[in-house]
Write a protein that binds this DNA or RNA. Sequence first.
DNA 1: AACTTTATACAATAATTATTTTACGTAAAT
DNA 2: ATTTACGTAAAATAATTATTGTATAAAGTT
Lengths: 193, 193
Amino acid sequence: MVHWLLKLVTGRVIHLVEQPFVKIKHVEDQLVEKIADNMHTYGVSTTVGRVLGIIYMNRKAMTLDELSEATGMSKTRMSQVVREMVDLNIAEKVFEKGIRKDLYNVEQDYYQTFISLFTSNWQKAINKNKMFEKKLSAELKNILESDTLSEEMELKVNDLLKETKEWLDYYQWLSRLVDFFESGEIFMHVPKP
Amino acid sequence: MVHWLLKLVTGRVIHLVEQPFVKIKHVEDQLVEKIADNMHTYGVSTTVGRVLGIIYMNRKAMTLDELSEATGMSKTRMSQVVREMVDLNIAEKVFEKGIRKDLYNVEQDYYQTFISLFTSNWQKAINKNKMFEKKLSAELKNILESDTLSEEMELKVNDLLKETKEWLDYYQWLSRLVDFFESGEIFMHVPKP
DNA sequence: AACTTTATACAATAATTATTTTACGTAAAT
DNA sequence: ATTTACGTAAAATAATTATTGTATAAAGTT
């Protein structure tokens, strides 16, 4: 960003004026690091979090080169990271006429970011499971038709069928839970401060 | 569990009777694997998920040796895994008189498991952040008192103070969100099917 | 048309996380 | 009083994930 300032720090005369700048930079860095750290809780890597924090603090979209510069990581890695972020719905590519490079921006609202991560995370799991349960349930019903089924086995199969049903219910609940967040209904019951 | 049955599979006479057993076992395994897989979404490793699934399907507490046998992993690993699970509040050590080995059991209610993982996960992050914000806020106020502060810098610091405040608010919200789940209030608004 | 710039695929390397092996302390069983 | 069983610490190894470097294709510039 304002790197010319940083270079002046060694100059004696301007030193006093620079001191606050350095401190501010330090606070900003700490904030970004904290955001990066927290991202583990959301199930994404530290680097994703760091990039999120950097763009967030920058207040406007950034290019891969700028991100690379800011993180000290390769441009390739930045490309990978922003793609992951776009997939997770926590960043978006923005077009700006006259600028050839891709620009990426992030949501400025914490709450929305939380919801995006929460929902994209769970939605994936929900979809995978609904399919699976159907397949399993069919498999079990098929076993029930076998005529060499002992009493004990039949009991077991029915138990598993019940299990499968409950599992499916649970995922239906999760699905509703995701809606509950995505629609913003959650804020009616847990209001923002 | 019922390993003696498995051993019979090669016997020709009992083969027809065993077929369903093998199929049932297969379904159970698939279920456990699915649970294990899903656990990624909760932010825990596959093995933790697998162990959860195994104990869950077993319907009663298991020892480290049994888990080791069931997963094919070392007892040491099982020790590590159950500890992690206890920390996450998704398993508990149970005592049974006459049995020397430690027994571990898991919650049989999916919903409760979800909540345990959700809350233990976030509670950790919340605690870490509350401290941090206080520290940062103090640091910023300190900078404000510097007399070599340019107009621009002062603006910046105030901006960061506001940022910090919002961040704190957000974590307060998360804290309430955790309560909302932990207290079971969530089920009043997103009822179980 | 030749040359840059940009993004990303792909293979190689580094770093982290998961797992096992060995070892040891403690508490029962003999 | 040994001996055996149990759980886990600590170090070593394996497996996975994160990161980089090289290469390439597509679009922009000269």
